[in-house]
């Protein structure tokens, strides 16, 4: 189904309600392979829900999400395979606390890609070196700092060799001095050409790293443009007032 013209992610008329609360009110959006897209907006605006619909952690109430042209549907037989290609990094890391750092990295490749354990460990070691944590391979997650946990979480997602990475406020639960080390890893990943969708409150990072910024407010995409367009020349009053609030802080 996928060819070079198919967008990496194709979202059409996406609605999501929780009970009577409609969080997403019709979102249309294409993300091209290699694009780095930052999603910003006030809390409760639906940014995280938007992100979680992309790998179908939330099922759309209406509308469709396609990755490489494949419909992301919880009931689809191949949903597990489709998710293998979409890595996700969570605000609260969600490392598996009963597994060592290396086991966190190898469990999915071994179970899903039928990779030999030795091979998976080798891949895992390369990834840990990339995020600067090769010495922590045998450590248990609870012995790591927040920044280290999040770098392991990024490595764990990368171990499946995904074509798309989703980041759900990856630095929001970190102590300020640890934000930099995580953003550095993400910056490196962007430079290598990874397709990334990042929900973030780090405006400096969004401006510097992203190709495109989406401003989501009240369940719709209110602004969609280059960082320069969105940050310097926002078209909506809502965007202006949001940016004023976060940038003056």
């Amino acid at each position: 189904m996928s060819n070079s013209n198919t967008p990496k992610v194709q979202i059409r008329d996406l609605h999501k309600s929780f009970g009577n609360n409609e969080v997403l009110k019709g979102i249309d959006c294409d993300i091209q392979a290699g694009e780095v897209v930052c999603v910003i907006g006030p809390s409760g605006s639906g940014k995280s829900t938007f992100l979680r619909c992309i790998n179908c952690l939330e099922e759309p109430t209406q509308g469709t999400v396609r990755v490489d042209g494949n419909l992301m549907d919880e009931k689809a037989k191949n949903i597990d395979e489709l998710r293998e290609d979409v890595g996700m990094v969570f605000q609260h890391f969600n490392l598996f606390p009963h597994l060592s750092v290396m086991e966190n990295l190898t469990i999915a490749p071994v179970l899903r890609k039928k990779m030999e354990k030795d091979e998976a460990v080798k891949v895992g070691m390369d990834l840990l070196e990339r995020v600067g944590l090769a010495d922590k391979a045998d450590a248990m997650p609870n012995s790591l700092s927040g920044g280290q946990k999040q770098r392991v979480a990024i490595a764990r997602a990368l171990a499946m060799r995904p074509g798309l990475m989703l980041f759900d406020e990856p630095t929001s639960a970190l102590d300020p001095e640890m934000v930099g080390e995580v953003l550095d890893v993400m910056r490196q990943l962007a430079k290598e050409g990874m397709t990334m969708v990042i929900v973030t409150h780090e405006m400096g990072f969004a401006r510097q790293v992203s190709d495109r910024v989406l401003f989501i407010d009240q369940g719709v995409i209110a602004e969609d443009g280059t960082p320069a367009e969105v940050f310097d020349n926002p078209t909506h009053e809502r965007t202006k007032s949001f940016l004023n609030k976060v940038l003056e802080a």
Partner: peptide, 23 residues
């Protein structure tokens, strides 16, 4: 068990059964 554990496992492609028994 933190619901985030299931989400992390499913996001890696683990099936519902693998998630339950391994995680």
């Amino acid at each position: 068990v933190d619901p985030g554990q299931r989400e992390a496992a499913r996001s890696l492609g683990l099936s519902a059964g693998q998630t339950t028994w391994r995680i």
